[in-house]
Design a protein around this nucleic acid. Structure first.
Lengths: 205, 205, 205, 205
DNA sequence: CATGAATGAGTATTCATTCAT
DNA sequence: AATGAATGAATACTCATTCAT
């Protein structure tokens, strides 16, 4: 955890450090990221860094914690009012807000991609802990299942995973030209594909 | 490309170098991978390395080329006899062999994960070139579409991407305890999910 | 430019680094000069060097800048009072001081010789920029031309170049035994030779 | 000296090695020149080099010997028939041939420039030995002096040196666009300048 | 005599971290 | 608490030369 000293810093300085870190971690894998570059970009003295963070891991944890909280906040704000439409309904509802948020933070996605590819113990640990957070969403899917939207023989956790992995990969093209619109369409396609695929078979007769 | 010198090396030495490289690239992103560590592990002098490979990129290309060829060879061997069952049939047919191959090479997957998360020009280039190779598979899916197995309004390339991304992510758990069996089941589920999701809607009336 | 850190260093340490660099650059072409040898001779850690200079080019620029300033300072101090004697008069006036200065810095000349023979972009760029500085001296010669000391059909820039090239080469023998006195005489001869060669032809009728 | 083995080599192979060496020595100072690059460019095995030359110095000596002989041959061929016009006459006579020769061998000049800037013992030794060869030319100038073309109080060796150094420097621009014509003119100017400067003073009254 | 593999010391530069002020 | 200098090990890569075949 960052030191109290860090949290007592003027907002602007804290912001500078944070975005320097985001920039670095979105361009280099964790192992490759350079504290040297970060302090240079943030414009803080080399020594100060170690008064705010114990090491690179400490900084990284701080960064992804902040980002994770932002993301969750957005999803919940937009998903909450439409819980009756099921999980996929909630996803659809929050989609525009999420896309806009990503638009403002081009680097966040890239950090995720690096994280996904890194199986070092430190990063793996973070990923595993993040997966635990999906429990709440799995509950939504279980409710959908009870409501007859999803066939009984399908594991909701698995369905969520397929959605997560496929949509995550889609976002790789987010910042390509025209990527935003394409993804919007593709996500709709994906949801449809999975909705149809997960629908009870009786319904199809 | 590796030098002729490299290919003339005694098999055992070549193997030592290759697996040292695989180990390194499966634990570190390309930029982060250390030739020093590789030569130390392979037990060859620093200078010798550069008689075999022109640089780190050369080594990396060699590694993924070899792995890619192995993989393709396996897929084709098992997929060829069952082309009439469509793409998903072919995948199902080759699955056991692929899983066994992965069992023997725990690191191969991790190289792929690092590659997926790396947006450096060199790695991106490799990924893009690899994507071109999917054309053949897309053709299979188009044939399936003509044969009425896939609804007309679905882009086969997109369907393939969903399958690729989701299955790719599944393999992350391959080496976890019990992972192999779980994946086997999950892949079957995934194929079923997508087959049903992609099926023409008339069928459901 | 060297970092502020460098300029804040204790004088003695700075001197040690500077003369280590002079020694290296006077014995090796720029490309060939070794920072390792420099830090070893200066007695500073490898890493410290890069806290003082951004790279080898930075160090080189610093060295020739300092030397160039010293040289210009001497020339101007002695040339200023005798501008009415024309360019060659000014050269003659500053000669003893320049020779004494060179006597104290045997290596400075050799750096120049290496520079003259080096056509790498970096060194060529320095040379070109240095040539621009000769404009002021060309003006002196043009004034001499108006004053009737130099015939009209002779390009002053060319005359200067001949003087520069010939005198520059003379200095090669500066540190040979008896070289100093010889050069003193030779330079006088050279000036006389060129003065007579450049004199208006009417005078000879 | 190169080994007999070298001289027994097929002409074409010898030529390849020679021009690879010329290319290297015209782009790098002697200390910086790389045998690796030379053998690579010449397309000969690494080991062969050491069967032809004992080391880098051996190769270098061979190169400048060959070039020196070519140059002297040309000068003599064109200077011989016009000895009665004095040294400067001979220079003028051989000028077109020399310029054409240089035109065919852009690299030869650059080797000379590197040599001129290098005060390492090995290179210095070569230069000193080359200077001894000028004796013959000094004799020409002494004859001119007796014939009344050069004033008595001027050291012919010195006059030659001034000419050599100034003309040598001129050639630096030989390969610049329009350089050839410019040099041709400049050399004429130079000769005139020195002829007038060296002329007996009585003649001018 | 031709070959090309082996090798360890060399190159410039960057790193994370400590510590005294 | 802020600072920035110090440091040695790390990085990828090149070198000249030897030697066995």
């Amino acid at each position: 955890m960052p030191t109290n000293t860090f949290f007592r810093l003027p907002k602007e300085k804290r912001r500078r450090i944070f975005s320097a870190a985001v920039k670095e971690f979105s361009n280099f894998s964790f192992a490759c990221a350079s504290i040297n570059r970060i302090v240079r970009l943030a414009g803080i003295p080399r020594g100060s860094f170690y008064q705010y963070f114990s090491d690179k891991e400490d900084l990284y944890m701080h960064v992804i914690t902040v980002i994770g909280e932002e993301k969750m906040e957005i999803f919940q704000r937009f998903a909450a009012p439409v819980t009756q439409t099921g999980f996929f309904g909630a996803v659809k509802a929050s989609l525009p807000a999420v896309l806009e948020w990503l638009d403002c933070h081009p680097d966040y996605n890239r950090i995720g991609f690096f994280m996904a590819g890194d199986d070092s113990p430190f990063i793996k640990g973070i990923r595993d802990r993040a997966n635990l957070l999906t429990d709440r969403i799995v509950s939504m899917l279980k409710a959908d299942q009870k409501a007859g939207l999803i066939r009984e023989d399908l594991d909701p956790a698995f369905l969520l995973q397929v959605y997560t992995d496929a949509s995550f990969a889609l976002f790789r093209e987010f910042y390509a030209p025209g990527g935003r619109e394409k993804i919007s369409r593709r996500l709709t396609d994906l949801i449809e594909l999975l909705q149809q695929g997960a629908a009870p078979r009786e319904a199809s007769l």
